[in-house]
Design a protein around this nucleic acid. Structure first.
Lengths: 153, 153
DNA sequence: TATTGTTATACTCTATAACTATA
DNA sequence: TATAGTTATAGAGTATAACAATA
């Protein structure tokens, strides 16, 4: 037995019928998905994902950062951090060195090629963030960032 | 040549030095990651991911929904939707039928086991959302949902 | 021709476990 | 003992391409 077709079903992203629209988690998930897709379009040429660019950016900002430190900044465990750094290193964007003070730790640095890629990525990021922020006022952007920071800060 | 160790590097999630903290996309990514991890903890017993629960919930809310319709609600393409529905079907939570009106379309329905799992998931979701919303006032929750809806709506 | 579902394939991210080395 | 890195492995999600069935 089949029911009526749903060609007339309204495509309201998250309906209010059963409280599904009241779940912040679902809204966050869909918003992140939309932003991630647009990010991928903007950085298609550089072939950098959100995670990869964030890692590259952080290594540039904190020269000599260890992998565990990078993982703490990005809220990732050791194995996940390894995977990201491996990809950046394979493309020659990041250099692994030994920490002078603690032999167990890595000392991550951005390479010349990495710095060049980061510079290009920053331009693409500006376009991407412009698209994102176009739907907000400056004050709303600040509010959104503050509210999101309460979740990951 | 190695640089100084970074044991003293402050773990400020997104520093302000190079504008990285001004990127909404990064904040969104980290927030979604944190929420996703807590979601996984709360729904560990049911072994349902955010995507799987959202799909199950939508099928329950729109009986007879086709896979393309489900994909539109969740902003996913056909192949990605297939993967989600396959997992739900493999666990007996969702039933595939043929649409009576359009032979090309599926007619998705929730099963009895799926409804039971959804009921349990709703309780776990309440705990999860409570944890999430504990850091906001009711008005802030409404603002956050509205701002996120502008991204995926 | 266009749409829907399907399969195959590949890549990214995530996580766990076990191992090595260093503290 | 604890920490940092590494490797192997597995699962989830995402995406593209090609194909069959139906409109």
């Amino acid at each position: 037995m089949t029911t009526a077709p749903n060609t007339t079903t309204p495509v309201t992203p998250l309906g209010q019928g059963s409280g599904i629209g009241d779940m912040v988690g679902f809204h966050l998930q869909l918003a992140q998905g939309a932003v991630c897709r647009h990010f991928a379009d903007c950085l298609e040429e550089l072939r950098l994902t959100q995670k990869q660019l964030l890692a590259l950016w952080l290594v540039a900002e904190y020269p000599g950062l260890a992998q565990t430190g990078l993982g703490q900044h990005m809220h990732m465990d050791r194995a996940s951090t390894m995977a990201i750094v491996n990809r950046l290193q394979a493309r020659g964007f990041v250099v692994r060195g030994k920490s002078a003070a603690d032999g167990r730790k890595q000392s991550l640095h951005i390479s010349q090629a990495g710095a060049a890629a980061l510079a290009k990525a920053r331009q693409a990021m500006a376009e991407h963030e412009g698209w994102l922020k176009a739907r907000y006022t400056a004050k709303e952007v600040a509010v959104l960032i503050e509210l999101l920071t309460r979740l990951h800060g």
